[in-house]
Amino acid sequence: MLSTRKLGLGLLSVAVSAPFLYMVSVSLMGESELLRWPPPLLPQKPTFGNYAAALAALPYAKVFLNTAILAGCVMVGQVLTSAAAGYAFARMRFPGRDGIFAAFLATLMLPAMLLVIPRFLLVNAVGWVDTYPGLISTELVSVLGIVLMRQSFLMLPRDVEEAARLDGAGEWTLFWRVMLPLARPAVITLALLAFMDQWRNFLWPLIVTRSADMAVAEVALAQFHSTYSGNWPYQMAAAVLVTLPVWLVCLIGQRYLMQGWRITGAAVRL
């Protein structure tokens, strides 16, 4: 029983990681190596030349800065909005609370694609196209983040909150000084998820930005792809560079990411 499960999980992890490993492998090959048949799995003579070339061809500093600004701002913004809304839904009493929360949940069923046009029209109306505010503003609230934070606030014991009330803490102090620190694991999880999501964000930046100056990682990578469409090792080197931060975040924050999926899993069951 256990071994079947292990075998299944093993196969799955190979299937998931194989493309990434092959991406790294190809990025280390010479340009002509991939023209042979069958294509080789490993480079004959590993070279870092592609990396040097990819770094030279892309305005990496600018692209990384743009992506970091987007991912960083959205990360902070989503943590703040999700924590505040999640706290309100979990611990405050107000009319229509559960109805409003259900409406929020319902929006999760809408495909994100559906909202791209309205979002663009809004951003365009305030003249923010091709600017940082345009890139960032509509990403600042995440329903999934609110669900995650609500659930983690619901799971906190009441005692500490009540002790703080008796100690004389007001609603804001209670949220900021007591509940938010208690929910720190969920906050870290949410921050990591938001960061990773934004680092990989492609569609929205593609639509709302135009100039090369505003390009984020995924958009730059796509442009790189169309410029060097034949040169796979070259493209794979650029792809490795662009995904590197996400890999690092994944490695470091593994524990928190797993926990986040567990919490939202519990939340969806309500």
Partner: peptide
Amino acid sequence: SPAERDVAMVFQSQALYPY
């Protein structure tokens, strides 16, 4: 409200601020 009553409570779980 609890704060206005000037009472203190000790909980079975202690309810200390863990951080």
